[in-house]
């Protein structure tokens, strides 16, 4: 019975951890959207900043992946 409660807690925690992915989605959208608006203002400078765009997206996305990882750990490892 005690194990079931721990399991329940783990599952609830996993679900809660998945909310972090929404944050990552907001972040990635922010990065891409701001890049696009900047690129439309000054298209000639946009090509040189693609690398920065991807780095920014990677950093934003990594945090979402971390929350996904926490969810996975709660689901399978705890």
């Amino acid at each position: 019975m005690e194990g079931s409660i721990v399991q329940m807690g783990a599952y609830i925690g996993a679900g809660l951890a998945c909310m972090g992915m929404g944050g990552a989605a907001v972040g990635v959208g922010n990065v891409a959207g701001n890049f696009l608006s900047g690129a439309l203002r000054n298209p000639s400078a946009a090509a040189g900043q693609t690398a920065t765009l991807f780095i920014g997206i990677a950093f934003a996305e990594a945090l979402g992946i971390f929350s996904f990882l926490v969810a996975l750990l709660l689901m399978f490892a705890v």
């Binding site: 990677a58 992946i65 971390f66 996975l72």
Partner: peptide, 16 residues
């Protein structure tokens, strides 16, 4: 840490 978990996490997440 972030360098490795980013790659592994992305690949694992998509496949899962």
């Amino acid at each position: 840490v972030s360098h490795s978990i980013r790659l592994a996490g992305n690949m694992m997440a998509g496949h899962a």
